[in-house]
């Protein structure tokens, strides 16, 4: 007794569409998924753009007044709204804009045309509408996406990991980046990616955002110990993190 498949739509705001690309590149998993859901709107893989949907995957940050109206419309239609990727979940790299006065940011990017640009601070979706599920990462990690999809279909909450990337990294028995004289944001970054970057020889850039209760001053001690200067530390943290200054607040500013 198969119930009717939930209709799923994909939308994007300010982003690179890379998280949707992860989805589109899923391979066999995507075929399996279409057994469970009906994709009605996903411009990377189909030409139809259905407006009748129950589940909305939304990529990207909110950066204009018209974005606010549009996301509110999507929220009204969707029974379930999922923030897909760092831009939607934490404002991601778009959040860097928030560290400068808006006028300065505009003139840096648009020069003498800055006056014609209508933009506001970069916001993650949950600052504007209610978000039911968060999928962190830049880009999203497909095994986690599938976990979230299953939770959506079973109408269960997704237990977002609230521990550091180090935990997964150690289970994967990687050599610590600090052992190799590289700085790494693993100790304060939310896990769930199975230490994807470090497994592949890179370091952690903190794209999944900070754990709920990051030990920012202890992490600062570590980075200082490994020879980073305060402004370099700030740069490492700022790439993805805490553009609204809610978590480590004054400590790094």
């Amino acid at each position: 007794m198969r119930k009717t498949k939930p209709r799923v739509a994909f939308f994007d705001f300010t982003d690179c569409e890379g998280c949707q690309l992860q989805f589109a590149n899923m391979g066999e998993g995507l075929l399996q998924l279409t057994e469970l859901v009906e994709i009605v709107n996903f411009r990377e893989i189909m030409s139809e753009a259905g407006q009748d949907y129950e589940v909305a995957f939304v990529e990207g940050s909110i950066t204009t007044e018209s974005d606010i109206k549009r996301i509110q419309e999507i929220r009204k239609k969707a029974k379930v709204l999922i923030a897909l990727g760092a831009c939607a979940a934490t404002a991601g790299v778009n959040g860097m804009k928030n560290r400068f006065p808006l006028e300065l940011a505009k003139s840096r990017v648009y020069g003498d045309k800055a006056g014609t640009v209508n933009t506001i601070a970069s916001l993650p979706l949950h600052k504007v509408v209610k978000v039911d599920y968060f999928i962190h990462g830049c880009p999203v990690y497909i095994p986690e996406v599938l976990q979230v999809v299953k939770c959506v279909l079973m109408q269960k909450p997704y237990a977002l990991p609230n521990y550091a990337v180090c935990v997964e990294c150690k289970m994967n028995e990687n050599v610590c980046r600090y052992e190799k004289d590289q700085e790494c944001l693993g100790p304060v970054t939310r896990a769930g990616c199975n230490s994807w970057c470090i497994n592949n020889g890179n370091r952690c850039y903190g794209c999944r955002g900070l754990v709920d209760n990051p030990a920012a001053d202890a992490q600062k001690d570590i980075l200082l110990k490994y020879g980073l200067k305060a402004d370099e530390i700030l740069q490492r943290f700022n790439l993805y993190n805490d553009s609204l200054g809610e978590k480590y607040g004054q400590e790094f500013k």
Binding site: L33, L153, C176, A215, A218
Partner: peptide
């Protein structure tokens, strides 16, 4: 405590730490 970042490395690498969590993982058939 002041210096700890709570990364969990010390317990992950310990030969005598035996705490575990149990999770049920559905496949895509649900």
């Amino acid at each position: 405590g002041r210096r700890c970042v709570a990364c969990g490395n010390c317990t992950m690498v310990c030969p005598t730490c035996y705490c575990f969590d149990v999770v049920d993982d559905m496949d895509l058939s649900l």
